[in-house]
Design a protein around this nucleic acid. Structure first.
Lengths: 363, 363
DNA sequence: GCGACCCTCGTTAGCGCTAACATGCCCCCC
DNA sequence: GGGGGGCATGTTAGCGCTAACGAGGGTCGC
């Protein structure tokens, strides 16, 4: 090995790695081969004699050598790094998806580099894509639940593999992974309808979110198919606070006996509003949420909700992306991840049906 | 400009960037200077005539040139990328801290590359550090709330700037940013004591977590200082479920009138357990949480809790790290982020004090 | 028995950039 | 007015790696 000399430097700058890390030629020298042969061993070339390979491997071990990914990226244009464009938010969905992505990336041997955006619009998404591309990521995964982002994707560069998560229909030609929102909303609405409720009210998420629209659509369709009246949906912003406010309004109307809420956090606010109004859940009003956050089972009462497996979603997205990168073929279409209705204690048959000012026993 | 030729390739592999991205020499050629001058312009060297600079800038714009960060990283060893070692979990604290880090990194012009770990132990942390280092990150931020991780840090490489978040005392000589756990636990406990409770029970987080220990310590000290009896703390795992179980046990004891819970999620479980046991909150039992998650204000009843500004914590940590990288000096000591007691509706004076089997009015 | 061919290596040339030195050139001073 | 000293630039040499080609030696065929 080289002398790990301790030459006192004139500059006080703490030079990185005093015992400078071994490079390929060091390994080659120690193993008595050229650096190129070392490269062959590392990249699993078949044209290396087994005993040479062993010598190289031993030398690598002895020197504690690991290849420099940056140098490799410079020449190959590949970096074993994936970009994730994420909407800057604490929202449960994107955060959990990110987690699933990370986990799967780690398993697939990729690093994740994150570009988190304050706003999701055409300019910011395009910019993030470009920055990531310049960092020579091998592919990019987008967590882009907003309509505006979809528009940016229409003009996305074609040279780099892209996968969008939670990004709605494949208008952009970019492969999409998503949870089946329609199925989820339908399951929630039908559950309430089957319980005997005359109709189901809805507190939706912000209209910019594709999920909001899809859930509204699923809810509305189910209602229409059942011949139930379709009330005007209220709109929240996913927060418990907005759910609380919507809950106060809805709870004041005695005709309301069943509410399908756009997510669990808003549902929590609804629960509190209903409690304050003296409306018992589920006896007076049934409530269904969406997401199945880990706490949902501990609400008062435990919340019936639609489970979205974000972790799985992220993993599916990542595997699709890695597949596109490594197989280099056309992206396969991935079926949406199925949501699951989790029935707990916030829903029951209506004890009575009150319409406007008329009250009558149900059925 | 070169001819962006469309030579049909023998290989069917979709070669990246057909109209190959401009490089420095392209810009130089167009501006009539050498590539080195372009480099000078980019790096803000003062030794460039203003009109030359303008010509170069114009050429860059015309070609849509952006420097290749990988090539730059190879030669400088710096990449404008920061590594984050994060405990693989959905825990609110680490997740929020990560978010704060991202936000601040973006502002500081850095990318974040994440190494998320399944387990936090010496081997995994050391390995993550090494992998990140090889990717030539400029610095590493660790979100390592576990004791085991601290031990790994003791043997961390010294060549690369490191900052630990939520990592307890600076045993390792690595600068740490954290929320003042002792102050938070003290505030919670004293609040309950001042309300007139004889003592305060505690449901702690897992003992591997440094925060758990610190909060126990703060709680215990406050109790001791007030001359209040110190009950044995129960132990949960941060989940609502574990809080529920601990709550069932504690709630069954009529002597328990005040509980300081290690985090809000467990507090939610406690609230449900108490509700099931017919113990009113706050009339029969007061409950204080920790974290102030966004939903805490919508629990039934709204939860009194200790607010930790994780977002700020992440930002502070990142700024410290960037400071270390760019100033190259010794890391300044950063004061812990102050927690804040948020009083809501889950705490009140005890309506009566019941000791073991004796009942007597409070004071 | 000799050319064709494959296997196993080595040598060379970059990837796109920055660092270090070299080169003119103008200005200024004694 | 000639040399020293900036200034603005160009030239060269890498960073550590892979790709492309080349070379030596053995094997096989006819």
């Amino acid at each position: 090995m080289e002398v790990p000399d301790e030459i006192p430097r004139a500059t006080s700058a703490p030079r990185v790695s005093r015992p400078r890390a071994a490079i390929m030629s060091d390994v080659g020298r120690l193993a008595g081969v050229s650096h190129q042969t070392v490269s062959r061993v590392i990249n699993g070339s078949p044209h290396v004699r087994p005993e040479t390979r062993d010598r190289v491997l031993a030398a690598m071990r002895e020197l504690g050598y690991t290849p420099n990914p940056v140098a490799r990226a410079l020449v190959t244009g590949r970096s074993n790094t994936l970009g994730v464009v994420s909407f800057d938010t604490t929202l449960y969905g994107p955060a959990s998806t990110l987690l699933g992505i990370e986990r799967a990336a780690h398993e697939a041997g990729y690093f994740i580099i994150i570009a988190s955006l304050k706003a999701l619009n055409r300019v910011s998404v395009t910019d993030a894509l470009e920055r990531l591309r310049r960092h020579s990521v091998d592919g990019i995964l987008l967590i882009t639940p907003l309509q505006d982002a979809v528009e940016a994707l229409l003009h996305a560069p074609k040279e780099i593999p892209l996968v969008a998560a939670e990004a709605g229909p494949e208008e952009s030609g970019i492969p999409v992974v998503q949870v089946d929102q329609l199925a989820g909303a339908t399951a929630a609405t039908q559950h309430l309808l089957e319980l005997g409720h005359e109709t189901v009210w809805h507190i939706a998420g912000p209209p910019e979110f594709l999920e909001s629209r899809l859930r509204i659509k699923g809810w509305r369709t189910s209602l229409a198919e059942a011949g139930a009246p379709v009330p005007e949906p209220l709109v929240g912003d996913w927060s418990a606070r907005s759910g609380y406010e919507a809950g106060r309004r809805l709870g004041a109307d005695p005709a309301v006996t069943a509410i399908f809420v756009g997510n669990d956090h808003m549902a929590l606010g609804v629960l509190r509003a209903l409690h304050e109004l003296g409306r018992a859940v589920p006896d007076d009003v049934s409530v269904v949420g969406f997401d199945d956050i880990p706490e949902a089972g501990y609400f008062l009462p435990p919340l019936t909700t639609v489970r979205q497996d974000f972790d799985e979603l992220g993993a599916v997205g990542l595997r699709l992306l890695v597949g596109m990168i490594e197989a280099d073929g056309p992206p396969p279409t991935v079926p949406p991840v199925a949501p699951e209705l989790v029935v707990r204690a916030s829903t029951s048959a209506p004890s009575r049906v009150i319409r406007a000012s008329t009250s009558a026993p149900s059925r």
